[in-house]
Protein backbone atom coordinates (compact mmCIF):
# COMPACT_ATOMS: atom_id res chain seq x y z
CA UNK A 1 0.00 0.00 0.00
CA UNK A 2 1.28 3.42 -0.95
CA UNK A 3 2.00 6.17 1.56
CA UNK A 4 -1.00 8.22 2.67
CA UNK A 5 -1.60 11.59 1.00
CA UNK A 6 -2.24 13.23 4.35
CA UNK A 7 -0.89 12.11 7.68
CA UNK A 8 -1.54 14.01 10.90
CA UNK A 9 -0.15 13.07 14.28
CA UNK A 10 -0.83 14.62 17.70
CA UNK A 11 -2.05 17.90 16.28
CA UNK A 12 -2.80 20.62 18.81
CA UNK A 13 -4.18 24.08 18.15
CA UNK A 14 -5.39 26.77 20.52
CA UNK A 15 -6.57 30.34 20.21
CA UNK A 16 -5.21 32.00 23.34
CA UNK A 17 -6.35 29.94 26.32
CA UNK A 18 -8.97 28.08 24.35
CA UNK A 19 -7.78 24.69 23.07
CA UNK A 20 -9.53 24.11 19.75
CA UNK A 21 -7.87 20.85 18.67
CA UNK A 22 -5.86 18.26 20.60
CA UNK A 23 -4.55 14.71 20.12
CA UNK A 24 -5.70 14.72 16.52
CA UNK A 25 -4.12 11.83 14.61
CA UNK A 26 -5.38 10.32 11.38
CA UNK A 27 -4.23 9.55 7.87
CA UNK A 28 -5.94 9.72 4.51
CA UNK A 29 -4.81 7.13 1.92
CA UNK A 30 -4.92 8.08 -1.74
CA UNK A 31 -8.36 7.96 -3.46
CA UNK A 32 -10.21 7.91 -0.13
CA UNK A 33 -12.44 10.39 1.65
CA UNK A 34 -12.32 11.13 5.35
CA UNK A 35 -15.37 12.93 6.73
CA UNK A 36 -15.44 14.93 9.95
CA UNK A 37 -18.78 15.30 11.67
CA UNK A 38 -19.50 17.23 14.83
CA UNK A 39 -21.36 20.22 16.17
CA UNK A 40 -20.48 23.77 15.18
CA UNK A 41 -17.43 24.89 17.13
CA UNK A 42 -16.08 21.35 17.52
CA UNK A 43 -12.98 22.31 15.51
CA UNK A 44 -13.75 20.92 12.04
CA UNK A 45 -13.09 24.13 10.14
CA UNK A 46 -9.96 24.91 12.16
CA UNK A 47 -8.58 21.48 11.33
CA UNK A 48 -9.05 22.10 7.59
CA UNK A 49 -7.57 25.59 7.88
CA UNK A 50 -4.51 24.12 9.63
CA UNK A 51 -4.00 21.59 6.84
CA UNK A 52 -4.14 24.46 4.34
CA UNK A 53 -1.73 26.57 6.43
CA UNK A 54 -4.35 29.28 6.83
CA UNK A 55 -3.91 28.77 10.58
CA UNK A 56 -0.67 27.78 12.30
CA UNK A 57 -0.54 24.79 14.66
CA UNK A 58 0.72 24.71 18.26
CA UNK A 59 2.11 21.19 18.19
CA UNK A 60 2.10 17.99 16.20
CA UNK A 61 2.94 17.13 12.63
CA UNK A 62 1.00 17.41 9.37
CA UNK A 63 2.53 15.56 6.44
CA UNK A 64 1.43 15.80 2.84
CA UNK A 65 2.92 13.12 0.61
CA UNK A 66 5.44 12.49 3.37
CA UNK A 67 6.55 16.12 3.55
CA UNK A 68 6.20 17.85 6.93
CA UNK A 69 4.30 21.06 6.22
CA UNK A 70 4.42 22.30 9.81
CA UNK A 71 8.12 22.98 9.28
CA UNK A 72 8.37 26.78 9.76
CA UNK A 73 10.78 27.14 6.84
CA UNK A 74 8.35 25.58 4.37
CA UNK A 75 7.04 27.72 1.51
CA UNK A 76 3.31 27.93 2.18
CA UNK A 77 2.53 28.81 -1.46
CA UNK A 78 4.24 25.59 -2.60
CA UNK A 79 2.20 23.52 -0.15
CA UNK A 80 -1.08 25.14 -1.15
CA UNK A 81 -0.42 24.27 -4.79
CA UNK A 82 -0.99 20.64 -3.85
CA UNK A 83 -4.22 21.40 -2.00
CA UNK A 84 -7.65 22.53 -3.08
CA UNK A 85 -10.01 24.13 -0.62
CA UNK A 86 -13.71 24.91 -0.90
CA UNK A 87 -15.34 27.15 1.68
CA UNK A 88 -18.78 27.31 3.24
CA UNK A 89 -19.31 30.82 1.83
CA UNK A 90 -18.08 29.97 -1.73
CA UNK A 91 -15.66 32.96 -1.74
CA UNK A 92 -15.75 33.33 -5.51
CA UNK A 93 -14.10 36.52 -6.76
CA UNK A 94 -17.06 38.82 -7.50
CA UNK A 95 -15.19 40.98 -10.03
CA UNK A 96 -14.31 38.08 -12.33
CA UNK A 97 -16.43 35.94 -14.63
CA UNK A 98 -16.86 32.27 -13.82
CA UNK A 99 -14.19 31.30 -16.36
CA UNK A 100 -11.73 33.91 -15.03
CA UNK A 101 -12.33 32.66 -11.49
CA UNK A 102 -11.33 29.18 -12.61
CA UNK A 103 -8.35 30.14 -14.78
CA UNK A 104 -6.72 32.73 -12.46
CA UNK A 105 -4.67 30.27 -10.39
CA UNK A 106 -3.74 27.88 -13.25
CA UNK A 107 -2.38 30.86 -15.21
CA UNK A 108 -0.74 32.77 -12.36
CA UNK A 109 0.41 29.89 -10.16
CA UNK A 110 0.97 26.97 -12.51
CA UNK A 111 2.10 29.05 -15.47
CA UNK A 112 -0.43 27.65 -17.95
CA UNK A 113 -1.05 29.70 -21.08
CA UNK A 114 -4.40 31.43 -21.31
CA UNK A 115 -5.59 28.98 -23.98
CA UNK A 116 -4.57 25.92 -21.99
CA UNK A 117 -6.24 27.27 -18.88
CA UNK A 118 -9.42 28.18 -20.76
CA UNK A 119 -9.53 24.72 -22.34
CA UNK A 120 -9.19 23.11 -18.92
CA UNK A 121 -11.88 25.38 -17.45
CA UNK A 122 -14.28 24.72 -20.32
CA UNK A 123 -13.76 20.98 -20.05
CA UNK A 124 -14.69 21.07 -16.37
CA UNK A 125 -17.60 23.47 -16.88
CA UNK A 126 -18.95 21.20 -19.60
CA UNK A 127 -18.62 18.14 -17.47
CA UNK A 128 -20.48 19.67 -14.55
CA UNK A 129 -23.16 21.31 -16.71
CA UNK A 130 -22.17 24.92 -16.11
CA UNK A 131 -20.88 25.81 -19.58
CA UNK A 132 -23.58 28.41 -20.26
CA UNK A 133 -22.54 30.27 -17.11
CA UNK A 134 -18.88 30.59 -18.16
CA UNK A 135 -19.05 34.31 -19.01
CA UNK A 136 -21.38 35.32 -16.21
CA UNK A 137 -20.38 37.01 -12.98
CA UNK A 138 -20.89 35.05 -9.73
CA UNK A 139 -23.76 37.27 -8.54
CA UNK A 140 -25.91 36.03 -11.46
CA UNK A 141 -25.61 32.41 -10.27
CA UNK A 142 -27.65 30.51 -7.69
CA UNK A 143 -25.91 29.47 -4.49
CA UNK A 144 -25.62 25.87 -5.69
CA UNK A 145 -24.10 26.96 -8.99
CA UNK A 146 -21.66 29.28 -7.18
CA UNK A 147 -20.52 26.46 -4.93
CA UNK A 148 -20.06 24.12 -7.91
CA UNK A 149 -17.95 26.78 -9.61
CA UNK A 150 -15.90 27.08 -6.40
CA UNK A 151 -15.34 23.31 -6.50
CA UNK A 152 -14.32 23.44 -10.17
CA UNK A 153 -12.00 26.36 -9.37
CA UNK A 154 -10.14 24.30 -6.80
CA UNK A 155 -9.93 21.09 -8.85
CA UNK A 156 -8.72 22.98 -11.96
CA UNK A 157 -5.37 23.01 -10.15
CA UNK A 158 -5.44 19.17 -10.07
CA UNK A 159 -4.78 19.07 -6.32
CA UNK A 160 -3.47 16.01 -4.52
CA UNK A 161 -5.97 16.60 -1.76
CA UNK A 162 -9.28 18.45 -1.70
CA UNK A 163 -10.50 20.08 1.52
CA UNK A 164 -14.24 20.75 1.69
CA UNK A 165 -15.39 22.88 4.59
CA UNK A 166 -19.15 22.54 5.19
CA UNK A 167 -19.74 23.34 1.57
CA UNK A 168 -23.52 22.91 1.74
CA UNK A 169 -24.21 24.79 4.97
CA UNK A 170 -25.06 28.04 3.20
CA UNK A 171 -27.46 26.40 0.74
CA UNK A 172 -31.16 25.64 0.90
CA UNK A 173 -32.14 21.95 0.80
CA UNK A 174 -33.05 21.99 -2.90
CA UNK A 175 -29.61 23.27 -3.91
CA UNK A 176 -27.65 20.94 -1.62
CA UNK A 177 -28.18 17.95 -3.91
CA UNK A 178 -26.54 19.40 -7.03
CA UNK A 179 -23.44 20.26 -4.99
CA UNK A 180 -23.27 16.86 -3.33
CA UNK A 181 -23.63 15.01 -6.63
CA UNK A 182 -20.64 17.01 -7.93
CA UNK A 183 -18.60 15.85 -4.94
CA UNK A 184 -19.75 12.24 -5.50
CA UNK A 185 -18.51 12.46 -9.09
CA UNK A 186 -15.11 13.65 -7.89
CA UNK A 187 -14.93 10.83 -5.39
CA UNK A 188 -15.66 8.34 -8.16
CA UNK A 189 -12.82 9.91 -10.18
CA UNK A 190 -10.49 9.00 -7.34
CA UNK A 191 -10.01 12.43 -5.74
CA UNK A 192 -8.58 12.22 -2.22
CA UNK A 193 -10.70 14.35 0.11
CA UNK A 194 -11.16 15.58 3.65
CA UNK A 195 -14.63 16.94 4.36
CA UNK A 196 -16.39 18.64 7.21
CA UNK A 197 -20.14 18.27 6.86
CA UNK A 198 -23.53 18.22 8.54
CA UNK A 199 -25.06 16.01 5.85
CA UNK A 200 -25.04 12.53 7.41
CA UNK A 201 -26.69 10.81 4.46
CA UNK A 202 -24.04 12.23 2.19
CA UNK A 203 -21.25 11.30 4.63
CA UNK A 204 -22.51 7.74 4.47
CA UNK A 205 -22.28 7.73 0.67
CA UNK A 206 -18.81 9.15 0.11
CA UNK A 207 -16.83 8.54 3.31
CA UNK A 208 -14.29 5.77 3.64
CA UNK A 209 -13.75 6.86 7.20
CA UNK A 210 -15.90 9.03 9.46
CA UNK A 211 -14.50 10.80 12.52
CA UNK A 212 -16.70 12.34 15.17
CA UNK A 213 -15.12 15.48 16.60
CA UNK A 214 -16.20 16.95 19.91
CA UNK A 215 -14.46 19.73 21.86
CA UNK A 216 -11.42 19.48 19.60
CA UNK A 217 -10.85 15.73 19.97
CA UNK A 218 -11.65 12.74 17.81
CA UNK A 219 -14.11 10.91 20.04
CA UNK A 220 -14.82 8.01 17.74
CA UNK A 221 -13.90 6.90 14.26
CA UNK A 222 -14.83 4.08 11.94
CA UNK A 223 -16.35 3.19 8.60
CA UNK A 224 -19.28 5.34 7.51
CA UNK A 225 -21.73 2.49 7.98
CA UNK A 226 -20.53 1.65 11.47
CA UNK A 227 -20.29 5.27 12.65
CA UNK A 228 -23.70 6.38 11.49
CA UNK A 229 -25.68 3.20 12.08
CA UNK A 230 -24.00 1.62 15.08
CA UNK A 231 -21.95 4.23 16.91
CA UNK A 232 -20.40 2.98 20.16
CA UNK A 233 -19.44 6.08 22.13
CA UNK A 234 -22.30 7.71 24.03
CA UNK A 235 -21.26 11.18 22.83
CA UNK A 236 -21.49 10.11 19.19
CA UNK A 237 -24.86 8.50 19.86
CA UNK A 238 -26.14 11.72 21.44
CA UNK A 239 -24.86 13.86 18.58
CA UNK A 240 -26.41 11.67 15.91
CA UNK A 241 -29.67 11.65 17.85
CA UNK A 242 -29.72 15.45 17.82
CA UNK A 243 -28.92 15.49 14.10
CA UNK A 244 -31.70 12.99 13.52
CA UNK A 245 -34.19 15.13 15.41
CA UNK A 246 -33.18 18.11 13.28
CA UNK A 247 -34.18 16.08 10.22
CA UNK A 248 -30.74 15.90 8.66
CA UNK A 249 -30.33 12.14 8.53
Amino acid sequence: MSAPVLEISNLRKSFGDEVVLQNISFSVPVHTATVFIGASGSGKSTLLRCINLLDSVDDGVIKIDGEDITDPTIKSDQVRRKLGMVFQAFNLFPHMTVRKNITLAPIQVHGLSKDEANARADELLNRFGLMEKADQYPDRLSGGQQQRVAIIRSIALRPRLLLLDEITSALDPVLVNEVLSTVRDLKNDGMTMVLATHEMGFAKQVADEVCYLEAGQIVERGSAQQMIETPQDQRTIDFLKRVHEAGRL
Binding site: N52, L54, S76, D77, R80, R81, L83, G84, M85, F87, A89, N91, L92, F93, L104, A105, Q108, V109, H110, R153, S154, L157
Partner: peptide
Amino acid sequence: SQRAAARSLGLSHFQ
Protein backbone atom coordinates in the same frame (compact mmCIF):
# COMPACT_ATOMS: atom_id res chain seq x y z
CA SER B 1 -12.29 35.37 3.11
CA GLN B 2 -11.39 36.66 -0.36
CA ARG B 3 -7.76 36.71 0.67
CA ALA B 4 -8.07 33.21 2.18
CA ALA B 5 -9.64 31.89 -1.03
CA ALA B 6 -6.87 33.40 -3.16
CA ARG B 7 -4.09 32.17 -0.89
CA SER B 8 -5.57 28.67 -0.74
CA LEU B 9 -5.45 28.60 -4.55
CA GLY B 10 -1.69 29.05 -4.21
CA LEU B 11 -1.53 32.73 -5.17
CA SER B 12 1.31 34.62 -3.49
CA HIS B 13 0.72 37.64 -1.27
CA PHE B 14 1.50 39.98 -4.16
CA GLN B 15 -0.64 38.07 -6.67
